[in-house]
Design a protein around this nucleic acid. Structure first.
Lengths: 320, 320
DNA sequence: CTGAAAGCGCTTACAG
DNA sequence: CTGAAAGCGCTTACAG
């Protein structure tokens, strides 16, 4: 509640606001007596001076803030890693990362009335309108692929890889187990799509998606798959895969003998099931590095780094 | 990069900046011609005018931003729920929530040079210094218990409850399985402490904590416990409990016959193990509500809501 | 080596 | 019903 300004500090130290600013910002090229410096610092500390971020930002014409926009996904270790790395890298330039959990309730544009960051980083593609609004507000935009196509391709690749692995193990009749969390529909669609593409290219029947609740063993779904002659399931993620696995156990189906299962994410729990889960691991470290480099490139006006290779890999364990 | 200001809009619309501000902010009590209003809005849209958040904040003397400080914990569904609810509640007052992932690398105080929110919400207790710095910067502070004592008591309660449940099932020799993730040490200590307190109060041997890696079945640890005569394990959380469970299976110990296990969190995966995991569920909805109310109270200057009751409860399933 | 002054872009009494 | 002017708190040429 204080509201101590640089003028108060100046008065208390018996100098001008100019000097206060120079001292407190360590402005180079100004030689101010050690004694004066100390007087200023003392006064600032004594009064509990905290410069106004708004005034600073207004005057300098740019902010030291980077906002990272998180889509409406469940957060977890992957996003954590991304964010931590970004924060570390940007800390070296005295920049701060703040995270916005974007929900559809309010347009993103509203946010820029409350804060104008130097740069906005998106983890999923922005809409054209959002991009326009940010650019007009003088905000740099960095997206994991601004057009959705690269982003989607990455997702499809996961599905392709799952299909490939399953069929490589001799399966011909595949099913897809998707999540009941609708926030993930966009991903699930692309991953399923990739799997279907791959199957089509290899002359296999088109796999169908079934929603698998993850709050209980999915024995009913598993039973139906078995009745339909399905011998292998690609799951949207490890959580779904684990529910399928538990369902198979309840239904008395041998894994991988009677039903093969492959997940995505390589979460810690995937090593704990019996048998341990075969899954597809996403290259989190590479993604983090790429994102950080992209932001730096945008900030420096240098060309964006090349797109990420498809460094996704299958972690072979016991369910395929 | 544009840099369209309200002056540009005023010029384009043939009015003063005053009028632009009135129209664009729907300032009540000003009767401006419908025709003028339209001219202003048109000009703003045509030029892509985005008001400067910094100038707005500086002039009005307060920001529409709330920063939520997240300690260095792994994020997950619980934190998500908290944040989403807070964002929803504050959206009704045209306030925005931004999240700061706090890492020890930089002092929190540095952040207030880049942004000055109206209010900061902490999910874990702040240090005295941090609180002072925020108050001096004119920022309101809301903490889940500003002094750590209430916070710690809640954690200890979890440990007490686990002990109580285990002993209620007839066990006399208990062990504690803690996490290897050191970010959680603070919690783990308190939870263990609570369990030890309870045991002491009931004349039982003091349980010892053992770190349980969660990236593989914990058969070695389980074997040692068994050799020591331990018949029941309280786990730091479900992830640890699941590793213990998998270890018991590998070691050929019957659960709960030869080894009882109880977790904390009630994560989805806890329903999928065999047997399904007995665990302690934290009242996330109640916590969210309480946090949101606390922030509102701070904003309105009304008294803070009463502390949260200990609405933690045991979810009985198959491992005790 | 230090200070007086301008100006960042907005909002809001105050005049007319 | 609309505009000219002040001022939020800072930084930074510019003078001295």
């Amino acid at each position: 509640m204080a509201a101590v300004t640089s003028a108060d500090v100046a008065r208390a130290a018996g100098v001008s606001r100019t000097t206060v600013s120079y001292v407190l910002n360590d402005t180079p090229g100004t030689s101010i007596t050690a004694e004066t410096r100390e007087r200023v610092r003392d006064a600032a500390a004594r009064l509990g001076y905290a410069p106004s971020a708004a005034a600073r930002t207004l005057r300098r014409g740019r902010s030291d803030l980077i906002v990272c926009v998180l889509p409406d996904w469940p957060t977890g270790p992957v996003v954590d890693t991304l964010l931590d790395h970004l924060t570390d890298v940007l800390a070296e330039r005295d920049l701060f990362v703040l995270v916005h959990h974007h929900r559809d309730s309010r347009a993103l544009a509203e946010l820029w009335r409350a804060v104008t960051p130097r740069c906005v980083v998106g983890l999923s593609p922005f809409t054209r309108d959002d991009i326009t609004a940010m650019e007009q507000a003088g905000i740099q935009v960095v997206g994991a692929e601004l057009d959705a196509s690269g982003f989607d391709a990455g997702q499809r690749w996961l599905g392709r890889l799952q299909a490939q692995r399953l069929v490589g193990a001799g399966h011909r009749r595949l099913a897809y187990g998707t999540s009941t969390d609708h926030r993930l529909d966009g991903f699930a669609e692309q991953r399923l799509h990739g799997m279907q593409q791959w199957c089509e290219e290899h002359g296999l029947a088109r796999p169908v998606a079934v929603a698998v609740p993850t709050d209980a063993p999915a024995s009913a779904v598993v039973g139906r798959w078995h009745d339909d002659g399905v011998t292998a399931v690609a799951a949207y993620n490890d959580e779904v895969a684990l529910a399928v696995l538990a369902g198979a156990r309840e239904a008395g189906l041998a894994v991988p003998g009677e039903l093969a299962v492959i997940g995505v994410d390589d979460v810690p729990a995937s090593r704990l099931s019996t048998p341990p889960l075969t899954t597809v691991a996403q290259p989190v470290a590479a993604h983090s590095e790429h994102l950080a480099r992209s932001v730096l490139a945008a900030l420096d006006g240098t060309p964006a780094p090349a797109g990420l290779g498809d460094e996704v890999r299958v972690v072979d364990r016991g369910t395929v």
